[in-house]
């Protein structure tokens, strides 16, 4: 176990956001935090590396409780990629080099430069090294942000909606990259995801939040149509398409705003035919 959370409770002013949150995460795992908007997915992520301080509860990282570590030490163990990053007139290399901040004393060393150089090659974004980040596309910027968190050499990566602003190709590219990194370096990833299909495809374990509490927690088998309906309030169908688990909502609104029931086959078990 690399990360443990127990009895975590977070209040914003007097409003309860999270309560009795408990789970643990192992090295080399990708964990998806799921749940509707405003349920506290991002808040939970921020509690894990003490960007937010929970009202009560314990978070442990590699055996140490997080409150016993100073901010720099936390940053050496946990990397965080927020939903939004600011740009400026600096190069991709500068931006990624910033990820070495928790390791830098007075100035960067050759080792820092080598690590950043290697990260660019490993991420396949060598061409972005000397591009200005204020001229980059959303996908490129997200790659830079993830590479930055990665050169922190953390044991845990926290990703807040890593793919929400990206097109299909970039989504796949970034998630494949994260997958490869996790496998190669044996680090744990905790990410919040909106798209259930993305989550089911790339994550090993799932934490579904509802009304401040963990509704369901476990591997792919616990993410059933009933659970999703209970958490999101939308009836869905789960099936397989060419061996890949897919989730689609049962009711779709067509262009006129009328609800259209998606036709199902007689058995009602496999909604989507393999083609």
């Amino acid at each position: 176990m690399i990360l443990g959370v127990d009895e975590l409770k977070f209040m914003y002013r007097n409003k309860g956001i999270l309560d009795e949150i408990a789970f643990s995460i192992n090295e080399g795992e990708i964990v998806a935090i799921l749940g509707p908007n405003g349920v506290g997915k991002t808040t939970l992520l921020k509690c894990l590396n003490r960007i937010l301080v929970p009202k009560q509860g314990v978070v442990t990282v590699g055996g140490d409780t997080i409150t016993s570590l100073d901010l720099m030490e936390i940053a050496r163990r946990i990397g965080y990629v927020p939903q939004r990053v600011e740009t400026g007139r600096l190069t991709g290399f500068d931006a990624v080099l910033l990820g070495r901040r928790p390791h830098i004393g007075w100035d960067v060393t050759e080792k820092d430069l080598r690590i950043v150089e290697a990260a660019f090659r490993s991420f396949g974004i060598d061409r972005l090294r000397l591009h200005y980040i204020d001229e980059m596309s959303g996908g490129e910027l997200q790659m830079i942000a993830i590479a930055r968190a990665f050169v922190q050499e953390p044991k845990i990566l926290l990703l807040d909606e890593p793919t929400s602003a990206l097109d299909l190709k970039n989504q796949i590219e970034i998630l494949q990259r994260i997958n490869a990194i996790v496998a190669e370096h044996n680090i744990a990833v905790v990410m919040t995801v909106h798209d259930l299909n993305t989550a089911l495809r790339y994550a090993d374990r799932f934490i579904l939040l509802k009304d401040q509490y963990v509704h369901t927690c476990g591997d792919k088998s616990v993410v059933t149509a009933e659970v999703i309906e209970a958490v999101y309030g939308v009836p869905v169908m789960i099936g397989e398409l060419a061996g890949v688990t897919c989730v689609i909502p049962q009711c779709l609104c067509n262009g006129n705003g009328r609800k259209t029931k998606i036709p199902t086959d007689e058995e009602g078990t496999t909604y989507v035919r393999n083609s």
């Binding site: 590396n49 965080y80 400026g88 500068d94 901040r101 968190a149 926290l158």
Partner: peptide, 18 residues
């Protein structure tokens, strides 16, 4: 370096231990 981190956004900076 801390100012660089802050320029990248408050949350990024906090994630970097600033």
């Amino acid at each position: 370096w801390n100012y660089n981190a802050m320029d990248a956004g408050d949350e990024t900076a906090k994630g970097l231990g600033v």
